[in-house]
Amino acid sequence: MFIISLTYSGPFEDIDRLIPEHNAFLDKHYESGSFIASGRKNPRTGGIIIANAASKSELEEIIKEDPFYRHQVANYEIAEFIPSKYNENFKLFIKES
């Protein structure tokens, strides 16, 4: 499982213009099961995506589809973690190894 932290590096007018395409990117990966949750940081400096992918390299390929990445208006930090404790309702997202 991964936490992707996006930090905006471009002007807000570019970010705002790309939001519809970014939302379509998110929707595609929610449908595939790769993304679990996402949202803006507060204050609005970027966003967070919680993802479930087979590997960090797979996730890096997914990120390359993001319009924010393609237009170079955000930087990405990926942290991998192994959930060892979680709410029972979250169990369906856990892939046993």
Rank of each mutant, 00 (worst) to 15 (best):
M1H: 14
M1I: 12
T7K: 15
Y8F: 15
Y8G: 06
Y8N: 12
Y8A: 01
G10D: 08
G10F: 02
P11I: 00
P11K: 13
P11S: 08
F12C: 00
D14H: 05
I15L: 09
R17K: 13
R17T: 08
L18P: 10
L18H: 08
E21I: 00
H22K: 09
A24P: 00
K28E: 10
K28S: 06
H29R: 05
E31N: 09
E31T: 06
E31K: 13
S32Y: 02
S32E: 11
S32W: 04
F35D: 01
F35I: 01
F35T: 03
F35W: 06
I36Q: 03
S38K: 01
S38M: 02
S38W: 01
R40F: 02
K41N: 01
P43V: 01
P43M: 01
T45V: 10
I48Y: 08
I49H: 05
I49W: 07
I49N: 05
I49T: 00
I49A: 03
I49G: 06
A51S: 07
A51W: 02
A51M: 03
A54D: 12
S55C: 06
S55A: 07
S55E: 09
K56D: 12
K56V: 09
E58L: 05
E60P: 08
E61C: 02
E61R: 11
I63T: 05
K64N: 13
E65T: 12
F68V: 04
F68G: 10
Y69T: 15
Y69H: 15
R70I: 14
R70S: 11
H71Q: 15
H71F: 14
Q72L: 07
V73M: 10
V73A: 11
A74S: 15
N75H: 15
N75M: 10
N75D: 15
Y76E: 14
I78L: 13
E80I: 05
E80K: 14
I82G: 06
P83G: 09
P83Y: 10
P83H: 09
S84R: 11
K85C: 12
K85M: 13
K85V: 12
E88W: 09
K91G: 10
L92N: 11
F93I: 03
I94P: 06
E96T: 11
E96Q: 12
S97A: 08
